[in-house]
Design a protein around this nucleic acid. Sequence first.
RNA 1: GGGGAGAUACUCAAGCGGCCAACGAGGGCAGACUGUAAAUCUGCUGGUUACACCUUCGCAGGUUCGAAUCCUGCUCUCCCCA
Length: 426
Amino acid sequence: MPTNFIQELKWRGMIHDIMPGTEEALLKESVGGYIGFDPTADSLHIGSLVQIMTLVHFQKAGHKPYALVGGATGMVGDPSGKSQERNLLDETTLKHNVECVKLQLEKFLDFKGENAAEMVNNIDWFCNLSFLEFIRDVGKHISVNYMMAKDSVKSRLETGLSFTEFSYQLVQGYDFYYLNKHKRCIVQLGGSDQWGNIVTGTELIRRKGGGEAYAVTTPLIKKADGTKFGKTEGGNVWLDAKKTSPYQFYQYWLNTSDDDAANFIRIFTLKTKKEIEALEKEHAEAPHLRVLQKVLAEDITVRVHNNEALKTAISASNILFGKSTADDLKALSEEDFFSVFEGVPQARISQAEFGKGMSIVEAMAGKTNFLASNSEARRELIANAISVNKEKVDEQFVISTENLINGKYILLGKGKKNNYILIIEG
RNA sequence: GGGGAGAUACUCAAGCGGCCAACGAGGGCAGACUGUAAAUCUGCUGGUUACACCUUCGCAGGUUCGAAUCCUGCUCUCCCCA
């Protein structure tokens, strides 16, 4: 007997829109449900984490989750939320992306047991479907008028969209139909921008076979300060450790504002209502300890990466933001040093170039490009923002061999949050 | 087709012959405070071999001792009338 999936999402604030009858249908018996992931890059980013969590909850409620990687839909391009026609990815890149995304998704779901998760790729049912078959069997059931009424299409009529993007909703709709017919998939989940596409699917299922089909969408995640969720100056926050190091990943969550932390912990962790309320109380009593942010960051980092990565991220954070000194830095073994500072920008300079020493300005800008120009380095030095091995320095400072840790590397810093490692190669 | 307005640094927006590397606001960065927060206060926000020099105010020329500011042409944008 399944538990109440919809109520679970509701108290977590994860429901934007829901089709009438969905809750009842999901309570009757264990069924299948799916979410599609776009292979637009070779890694998912934390925006997709909402969708992943929805699938996780779906499975926990006793249903069978299907994670669909859009090998076929990726070839078409979803116009939803896009103001311009997209460029198509070539097939090789697409294949590569599909494989990468698949591997990432596999981490989160349980592929064993009665309601084991399943990975599907829509290229498998599209590759043998001919164009004529498609427009006869699928296109015949959905009117152009209906398709044009969708926001994703309507908002593009002024600027234009290709037939390819226009057809997208039919392609995605067919996915739903296919999974509904072959895998007993009765609900499609997704972000709120997917509502239109999902509904085309339920419509197709009803018209083509009279089957039952439902839809649930999650809200777009917003931050209280109005900036985009999941973005930093450096770009997206990725799930791939090669693109966003576990340290940066951990830091992103740790820096969640008080206003957002309570929402995020509901959405991105599996903590129960009781646990979360207790944490909120604790946080309210001692806000400076930032219990919510810490639990949030730890929980997600462990699930996306692993325990080991979390440990390193925490120790890196303690060293960079805690009370540690130059001596603590020097006490780290070389291996620890580099694993702690993985993901921190690095530059290498030859022994010859370093010579007996190097001015701090050259080390920050001229020779390394950590900062855009020597002028900027000077400005920051005057503002007392630059540190060498955690100690503030002034413009006169010259880095000498004595400052090098283990004789070969050194930690430079600008302000509280920017660190750079300079390595002298022998 | 006719008439008018405009194009200034990341964005908005002053300046209309020398005092302009260019007011101000936003954004960004940093300092203080703090909780690696918010709010607040302060400084910075073209480059360099730095009390000077160099490159910048749509593009290309010109006038002048000297122009972002004046003239000519070009490109683009907006508005009004038909």
